[in-house]
Computed example of a mutant assay.
Amino acid sequence: SMWVDGNYKAWKRQRAVKRRPKRKRFDNRFLHSRQQVESEFAEAGFSIRGKVDFLPRYAMWRTYVLECD
């Protein structure tokens, strides 16, 4: 599972990150582009059997079920 874009909470997080002052330490949370993640799965030889969004269109969490081709 991972955080993906295309929902309300991702939009709020991206907006907050832009407004926040730059830090010298690294942020430990990453927001991924759905298209990029899914293309990387295909490039690595996996096909997506299913995907489940926790609170669709609101929360960032998405779980993928992958199958090796």
Results as ranks from 00 to 15, higher is better:
Leu66Ser: 03
Lys22Ser: 12
Ala44Ser: 13
Phe46Val: 06
Val37Met: 09
Gln35Asn: 15
Lys22Ile: 08
Arg19Tyr: 01
Trp11Pro: 00
Gly6Lys: 06
Thr63Asp: 11
Gly50Ala: 06
Asn7Phe: 02
Lys9Gly: 01
Asn7Trp: 00
Glu67Asn: 04
Asp27Met: 13
Arg34Cys: 09
Leu66Val: 03
Trp3Arg: 07
His32Gln: 11
Gly50Asp: 05
Glu40His: 12
Gln35Pro: 13
Gln14Val: 06
Phe26Ala: 14
His32Pro: 04
Met2Thr: 01
Arg49Ser: 02
Arg25Trp: 15
Trp3Glu: 11
Arg34Trp: 09
Gln35Tyr: 12
Arg49Glu: 07
Glu67Gly: 12
Arg23Asn: 04
Asn7His: 02
Ser1Asp: 06
Ala59Thr: 01
Lys12Gly: 00
Lys9Ala: 04
Leu55Arg: 14
Leu55Gln: 14
Lys24Gly: 09
Arg57Ile: 11
Glu38Ser: 09
Arg29Ile: 15
Tyr64Arg: 07
Arg29Ala: 12
Lys22Met: 13
Arg23His: 08
Gly45Met: 04
Met60Tyr: 02
Glu40Tyr: 02
Lys12Arg: 02
Arg57Leu: 09
Arg57Pro: 00
Ala59Met: 04
Phe41Ala: 00
Ala10Trp: 05
Tyr8Asp: 12
Arg23Met: 06
Ala16Leu: 11
Asp69Lys: 12
Val17Leu: 10
Arg15His: 04
Asp5Gly: 08
Ala42His: 14
Glu43Tyr: 09
Ser1Gly: 12
Lys9Gln: 03
Asn28Pro: 10
Glu38His: 07
Phe46Gln: 04
Val37Glu: 02
Met60Leu: 04
Arg25His: 14
Lys51Phe: 00
Phe26Asn: 12
Arg23Val: 05
Ser47Arg: 07
